[in-house]
Design a protein around this nucleic acid. Structure first.
Length: 499
RNA sequence: CGAGGCGUAGCGCAGCCUGGUAGCGCACUACCUUGGGGUGGUAGGGGUCGUGAGUUCAAAUCUCGCCGCCUCGACCA
C-alpha cells in the first residue's frame, strides 16, 4: 500500500488501516486488483517470472468453470483429446501470419541434457499447428468429418508485463479445434461456440458481454475471421473474455488437412478454433468485486453459502455441530456449503474474511436462533441481515442465489450501458475514452486509421457487434470518427481501452 | 524490452544517509479472556536483511552486476 519507502516514524502504527481489507477501487484500481487476488487466496506469485500459482480457492473456481464448459462441449458432440505441450518449432513456421504473431513470445526448448537439439521445440502458444499436423493423418474422406475436438491444458506466451489471471506467461484454457467439410458448417461452429461462451457468461458468471467480430487488425494470427465477447471491468476497460476463430483453409493448407469429397475431388478442410482462458477469472474479479473484496457469482462460486456458528465457550462446539446439520440440509439441495468452525476467531473477523472471498450468502447460527427456529441470513452484496424461519431460509436458498445472480447481472449491465457513449466527433471520442468509457463510433475500417486512434487515445476497436448482439446491434452508416471517410461494417464499432 | 519505483519474518513497515552482526504492529503457537461486525491479556516461536561479487577489521547499511515485484510505455488472450 504505502509506496514511498522513505517514510519515518512509522513502526507499524495505524495497524487497522494497513492490516485489514483492500485498497479501495477508487484509490487505485490496480492495487485493489492485486490485493484481492492475493488476500482472497486466489493466486500467488511464483518464483517463475510472469507465472502465477493458482491456490486452492482459485483452483476450485477454475474447476467449476471447466466443469460447466466441459459438460456443454460434450453435449454438443465435441470430444476431448490431449496433445503434447511441446511443438516442433518448424510447425509454427508453416503458417505465415501465425509465425509473425507468435514468434516473439515463444519459449524454446533447444537442449536435452547438454545435447543441442537439431530440431528445437517450442512450448505451445496454441495448438493449431500440431493438431493440423495430426489431422492430416487422420483425415481421408468427407465421411470422417467433422472433427470436433478440444483439449484442456496450459499454453505459454512470454509476456513482458504480466498480471495475475489477466496476462501470465503460462495460462490455462481449453482450446477447441474443429475441422469441417465446408465453410458454412465451419462458420456455424464458430458462431455456436461463441454463443455458448456468451451463454456461460450471462447465465453462469453474471457477466454481460458484447458479441461481435474483431476488426482485421485485432484478428487472431492466421484466422480469416475472429469473433469475441467483450466485457467491461469496473474501471471501464474492456476485457476480451472469449474468442472463436474461423480459420478458413489457412491451417489445413499449411498442414495438408485434406479429404476426398463425395464427388471424388480433393478438398482442404475448413477449420475453427475457440478458447476461454483463466483470464475469465480476472473478468469475474473486476466485474463484480467491490471495496470489501471479491464477489463470486453464485452459480460458479466454490462456496455458495458459508455458515458461521455463533457461540460462547460453553456452547461453541454444539453450535458448530448445529452448523454442520444445517450445512447438510443445504448440501442435500446440491449447494456448496462451508461451515466456518474456526475457534478463537471472532465473528466479525469471519464476516470480513468471507466477504473478502466473495461468498454470496452468509448464515449466522447462534443459540438464540436455534431456540427460536430462525436463521440470520445476509447476502454478500447487501448490508441487510434478514432473520428468517429456518425452513424458509433453507428451502429458499437456491432461489436466493438466483436472485443474487440476477442482481449481479443487472448491476454489471447497467454499468456497462452507463459507461458507453455514442459519439460522432473525434473530440467527443477522445473525451469519452479519457473518462474511462467505451465509445461507439463509425469507423472507416482502415487498419492504419485504427492504429492512429490507438496512438492518440490508447483505445482499440473491441469488436463490431453482431446484428443480434444484446447491445449495440443497431445498423447504420456514417463517417469515420477519425478520418471522415465513409463508415465500414454497416454499424458503429465498439472502442475502448483494454486489458 | 525502454523509463521510473521498490525488494528487511506470512502481511504492512522502521533501521540504511552518519557500517559494529536486526526491530515494531498484525499474523502464528500456548494458556486465559472474549464471542450476533475485524475482543483483551500473558508468555513464546520465526528473519542474516532478494541474490552474487567487491570495499572494509567489520556490510541490512557503501559500490557494481544479476533476479524479482509494481507503475507507465511498446507488445500481447
Amino acid at each position: 500500500m504505502t509506496k514511498d519507502g522513505g517514510k519515518k516514524d512509522n513502526q507499524g502504527q495505524d495497524k487497522k488501516a494497513q492490516q485489514y481489507g483492500v485498497t479501495p477501487q477508487s484509490v487505485d484500481f490496480n492495487d485493489w486488483y492485486n490485493e484481492v487476488v492475493k488476500k482472497a487466496d486466489l493466486a500467488d506469485n511464483s518464483p517463475v517470472a510472469g507465472a502465477m500459482v493458482v491456490r486452492p480457492y482459485g483452483s476450485a473456481l477454475w474447476e467449476n468453470i471447466q466443469r460447466w464448459l466441459d459438460d456443454r462441449f460434450k453435449a454438443s458432440g465435441h470430444e476431448s483429446l490431449i496433445f503434447p505441450t511441446l511443438i516442433p518449432m518448424n510447425f509454427i513456421m508453416k503458417e505465415a501470419d501465425h509465425v509473425e504473431g507468435f514468434a516473439p513470445e515463444l519459449f524454446t526448448v533447444n537442449k536435452i541434457g547438454t545435447e543441442e537439439l537439431a530440431e528445437p521445440y517450442v512450448m505451445r502458444p496454441t495448438s493449431e499447428t500440431i493438431i493440423g499436423h495430426m489431422w492430416s493423418g487422420w483425415l481421408n474422406s468427407y465421411r470422417d468429418l467433422p472433427f470436433l475436438h478440444y483439449q484442456w491444458g496450459s499454453v505459454f506466451r512470454a509476456e513482458l508485463r504480466t498480471k495475475a489471471f489477466l496476462r501470465t506467461s503460462e495460462f490455462f484454457w481449453h482450446e477447441g479445434h474443429t475441422a469441417h467439410a465446408d465453410e458454412a458448417e465451419a462458420r456455424a461452429e464458430v458462431r455456436q461456440q461463441l454463443d455458448l461462451y456468451h451463454e456461460f457468461c450471462r447465465d453462469v458468471l453474471a457477466l454481460p458481454v458484447v458479441r461481435g467480430e474483431k476488426t482485421a487488425s485485432e484478428r487472431f494470427a492466421g484466422a480469416v475471421a475472429t469473433y469475441s465477447i467483450e466485457g467491461m471491468m469496473r474501471d471501464g476497460k474492456a476485457l476480451q473474455s472469449g474468442t472463436s476463430h474461423y480459420l478458413g483453409q489457412n491451417f489445413s493448407r499449411a498442414f495438408d488437412v485434406k479429404y476426398q469429397t463425395r464427388e471424388q475431388k480433393e478438398e482442404f478442410a475448413h477449420t475453427t478454433s475457440w478458447a476461454i482462458s483463466s483470464r475469465i477469472i480476472g473478468a469475474i474479479i473486476m466485474t463484480h468485486g467491490d471495496d470489501s473484496g471479491l464477489m463470486m457469482p453464485p452459480r460458479i462460486a466454490p462456496i455458495q453459502v458459508v455458515v458461521i456458528p455463533v457461540g460462547r465457550k460453553d456452547n461453541f462446539d454444539q453450535m458448530v455441530q448445529e452448523g454442520e446439520k444445517l450445512a447438510a440440509e443445504l448440501r442435500a439441495q446440491g449447494l456448496r456449503v462451508k461451515v466456518d468452525g474456526r475457534d478463537g476467531v471472532t465473528n466479525g473477523f469471519k464476516y470480513n474474511d468471507w466477504e473478502l472471498k466473495g461468498v454470496p450468502v452468509r448464515i449466522e447460527l447462534g443459540p438464540r436462533d436455534l431456540e427460536s427456529g430462525v436463521l440470520v441470513v445476509k447476502n454478500r452484496h447487501s448490508e441487510d441481515k434478514e432473520t428468517l424461519p429456518r425452513a424458509e431460509a433453507v428451502s429458499g436458498m437456491s432461489a436466493r442465489l438466483d436472485t443474487i445472480h440476477d442482481f449481479l447481472m443487472k448491476r454489471a449491465t447497467d454499468f456497462l450501458l452507463a459507461n458507453t457513449a455514442e459519439v460522432d466527433s473525434y473530440d467527443a471520442f477522445q473525451r469519452e475514452i479519457e473518462a474511462g468509457h467505451w465509445v461507439r463510433a463509425y469507423h472507416c475500417g482502415e487498419p492504419a486509421c485504427e492504429k492512429s486512434i490507438k496512438e492518440d487515445t490508447k483505445a482499440t476497436a473491441r469488436n463490431v457487434p453482431f446484428d443480434d448482439a444484446e447491445f449495440f446491434a443497431e445498423r447504420g452508416e456514417g463517417q469515420c470518427v477519425k478520418c471522415g471517410q465513409p463508415s465500414a461494417y454497416g454499424k458503429r464499432v465498439l472502442f475502448g481501452r483494454q486489458y
